[in-house]
Write a protein that binds this DNA or RNA. Structure first.
Lengths: 215, 215
DNA sequence: CTGCCATCTGAGCATCGCTTAGATATTCAT
DNA sequence: ATGAATATCTAAGCGATGCTCAGATGGCAG
């Protein structure tokens, strides 16, 4: 009796984590961001919650920015797979652009902590952590390829695809920013809808514009 | 001799500012944000730069959030007048929407420090400073009235204007966010254009979509 | 068993937000 | 003009943060 408790104590209660502390700090950091915002994200607090001393995290992350950079890279990968799926289930490029916007918003709902950190790039010090920049470039490349397909379909004017790429990209970033900051939710509540309905309506509006005949 | 210097010393060198310290802190705060970002904005540092003790700012601002809230309110007023001008010089509602986007971007260029602070609403603690929320609502109301005018002109589908309001609003917020964070500038440099040209092209793309005939 | 490496501790430094008690300047009524 | 009331500032201090470093401890390979 008590044998398993002695031989297999909770990883949290053992002082020496041996590899587990790093992932534990990352997970606790995400929960903390979700609960209290990125302002509350401190290595000291994560160490306290993990039951280790305040210096312990520095054996796994050079500094706070490195932990944040790890979260950002994870987030960009999660986002990228969602965007890929959105394209895969779409029948044409215009529908893919609509689904891209919806997928971005659903990523915001399901991974709000990741997104909150991703939207504060200065916290990750991208100059010191180039993997952040390269991870963030992949979703844009995907978006560009869809815009080019939309040009081939005639929905987007031929020529430089960048304006339309920036348009959709800005729209996605702006919508989730406003959603995380509250004003979208507040307006939707006043209007009797939800933020989920709203992004669908916004995305459908984009689709309606793109499906109008070009003159 | 030396009379005027004795009677009118620099306001900065006088220990007792009597009303001037508040505005001096606000101005120094904006310069600090422009130079080093909002992360560097601390009351202690502003006090140091003003040549005053670390407790002095607390006689003009209850806390850091109150100074930030004052900057945000100023910024929203500056933005609102720009948007009003953009509408005034536009011949129709669709052109007004295009100019609104351009004006938003030019506000970002000319008042980047204000905007950096405005885009971090949690720093201003809007729950404790309701004037922040009301100041931020005026630009949206202006936008909504233009969208409704665009509906009257037939460029926007009739019905609920909110989806188009959120579309333009998100687009503006997203574009300036990406510009402040660097990726827009980086892409434009790689493409041989400027961020100023880019927002004009994006805004013109929106206009082109809105001027297509509705089916 | 020994030695090495990974990991963690604990103390310390500088900075920050904010509070408090008290000192000083300005203003205003008398 | 004088003295009281008010506005403003100082100096010291508390708790928290990021980060560093010397040294202790755990676990694994030889």
């Amino acid at each position: 009796m008590g044998q398993s408790a002695d031989q297999q104590p909770d990883v949290d209660s053992r002082p020496y984590h041996h590899g587990a502390l790093r992932s534990q700090l990352l997970a606790a950091g995400l929960e903390l961001v979700k609960a209290e915002g990125v302002g509350a994200l401190s290595l000291r607090r994560l160490a306290r919650e993990a039951g280790v001393s305040s210096g312990a995290p520095y054996h796994h992350f050079a500094d706070r920015a490195e932990l944040i950079a790890a979260i950002v890279v994870d987030g960009h990968e999660l986002l990228f797979t969602r965007l890929e799926t959105a394209r895969a289930v779409s029948s044409d490029a215009v529908a893919a652009l609509r689904e891209l916007l919806v997928a971005y918003a659903s990523f915001a709902v399901d991974h709000s902590a990741h997104l909150r950190v991703m939207l504060r790039p200065e916290l990750a010090e991208p100059d010191a952590h180039p993997e952040v920049t390269s991870a963030g470039a992949r979703p844009i490349e995907l978006l560009r390829s869809i815009v080019q397909a939309a040009q081939d379909e005639g929905a987007v004017a031929p020529g430089d695809p960048e304006p339309m790429v920036h348009l959709i990209w800005s729209l996605a970033v702006g919508y989730v920013t406003l959603w995380l900051d509250g004003p979208v939710e507040a307006r939707c509540a006043a209007l009797g809808t939800t933020a989920d309905d709203m992004i669908r309506q916004v995305a459908s509006t984009v689709e309606e514009l793109l499906r109008r005949p070009r003159t």
